[in-house]
Design a protein around this nucleic acid. Structure first.
Lengths: 109, 109
DNA sequence: AAGGAATATTCCCGTCAAGGAATATTAATG
DNA sequence: CATTAATATTCCTTGACGGGAATATTCCTT
């Protein structure tokens, strides 16, 4: 698993950017305004997201519209698969345990 | 969403630790050895994982056994939910598109 | 109680990331 | 072509992070 996506999302401002872009593409200015950032900082953070593959840019005249790319998130989702097994196993164990209790209850009368 | 988990996983060594612990708890020494780390570095990284809630410790005599905690990963999994919708929508759109092609093919003869 | 094994913590240092301010770039417009 | 709007890049400084080496702590053993 590539750690680049984690570093990119480890910065609160960038995480908020990603969450914002979930609802559709935005220009740098829009992003900066909504997050109360100065434009250069917005551009810099967007560059990091770009290099992590989390966004793509479409130039439209003066503007640059940044759009979310889900591919790295899909990779992350796949990576999580192995861990989902673990917590679902735990759930199953709890489930088994509850069933055991249940059957003991049934033995009693 | 808490960024702490991302910072914790952004470090390649720590990510490897998490992946190792997927298969069960390990002592500091074991972890250090498998990753060819010096013990102090292993301890330091484990501390970060601990503070991120990604592991828990169980002291057993001299040893400290570190065990994976999946709770932060479950939070991450939940956070991903909103994005899964996006890429599955895209898939649906592609699906629709292919169906359209299909029906146009059928019109032709 | 002393010694040794396993682990944690501290100190030092080099590197890197982030913000601020200034400047460069690109495109539209008069 | 000059100006302006939108964005990117650079330079600087500061703070956090990671590795190395040394040391402290804890617990077992004898």
């Amino acid at each position: 698993m590539e750690t680049k996506i984690f570093s990119a999302l480890a910065e609160p401002t960038r995480l908020r950017m990603v969450e914002m872009l979930k609802d559709g593409p935005l220009s740098v200015g829009d992003i900066a305004e909504r997050l109360s950032l100065r434009q250069p900082q917005a551009s810099k953070h967007l560059r990091v997201l770009l290099e992590a593959g989390l966004v793509e840019v479409e130039a439209q005249a003066n503007r640059r519209n940044y759009k979310l790319r889900t591919e790295p998130l899909e990779v992350l989702d796949t990576w999580l698969e192995a861990y989902r097994k673990i917590w679902s196993e735990r759930f199953d164990n709890l489930d088994d345990y509850l069933r055991q209790l249940q059957s003991k209850d049934n033995e009693r009368p």
